[in-house]
């Protein structure tokens, strides 16, 4: 506890800000149903009631649903889906990447070339192509983005572990007769963790922005599920009247990504010892 406190004290203000934002979002996502006055897609009034009128703090949306309620539920859905997707991407990419370096040979070659080809297509274009064929639903969305994103994780996991796998203690473990899974989990993974953790933050931001963009295009999370990207899309007409409520969900997305980026930035500086002033 004392160590954590000391660590927090040494953190720059930007990182502290980021931590506070992340914790706040997690709390809102968990306690969403308690905090909200109405149901997720409950129609409570006429459409586009302005901010502050009739007891609606943020007004109502294009179908007469409470904006604040949907904003809070959006935290659950958008962050939840992005988090699950990132975890899955790390599971796929991380395991395959570490396996590629540990096993080497044709496994490494095959996986490497496959990832090269997949990465040659921009991720958004690829996702749009697959979603055309499969149609959009949450499980498909998670699976498609996780697989596409895992190529980036694979690259990093491979690059990081490549330098570790040639070290003496891995050799020693091999001579001891340890299996592949032991070498990966006990010898390589602990040493490859810091860059992978930082990458997790960055990939989460990417996936989070990506899902929001897809939802904004109407091809991501489908109604009536509350989601920040599609909320912007549904209420965008209000912006041309100079009304800022449709920007709230977009700002919510931006704030979380800024927070995560600040924390990752600090973490990278701490673990890698990168100093600008060398």
């Amino acid at each position: 506890m004392a160590r954590i406190w000391k660590l927090l004290k040494s953190a720059p203000p930007t990182a502290l800000f980021g931590l506070i934002v992340i914790v706040a979002y997690i709390l809102i996502a968990i306690f969403g149903p308690i905090l909200t006055p109405y149901g997720e897609s409950e129609i409570v009034g006429t459409q586009f009631i302005p901010r502050g009128e009739q007891g609606f703090i943020l007004g109502t949306d294009n179908l007469g649903r409470d904006m604040l309620t949907r904003l809070i539920y959006g935290a659950r859905n958008t962050i939840g889906i992005a988090f699950v997707t990132t975890c899955l991407a790390f599971l796929i990419g991380g395991v395959l990447g570490l396996m590629a370096t540990t096993l080497g040979g044709w496994v490494d070659q095959l996986l490497g070339r496959l990832v090269d080809v997949l990465m040659a297509i921009p991720i958004l274009i690829f996702a749009l192509l697959i979603l055309t064929i499969t149609g959009t639903s949450v499980p498909v969305l998670i699976l498609v983005i996780a697989v596409l994103d895992s190529t980036r994780v694979f690259r990093l996991a491979r690059a990081v572990s490549m330098n570790i796998v040639v070290l003496d203690f891995v050799e020693a473990a091999r001579l001891r007769g340890e299996g592949t899974s032991w070498i990966i989990t006990r010898e390589i993974l602990p040493n490859a963790l810091p860059p992978l953790v930082a990458e997790f933050g960055l990939r989460f931001c990417f996936v989070f922005l990506f899902i929001s963009a897809l939802s904004f295009l109407g091809l991501g999370i489908q109604p009536p599920t509350a989601d920040w990207g599609s909320m912007v899309r549904d209420n965008a007409t209000l912006i041309t009247y100079g009304e800022i409520t449709p920007l709230m969900p977009a700002a919510a997305i931006a704030l979380l990504t800024v927070g995560v980026n600040f924390v990752v930035d600090w973490f990278l500086h701490k673990t890698s010892g990168i100093r600008d002033d060398k």
Binding site: L209, G229, A254, N261
Partner: peptide, 9 residues
Amino acid sequence: SFPDFFVAY
């Protein structure tokens, strides 16, 4: 960190 559409709007 900003989504493209946020910057745009």
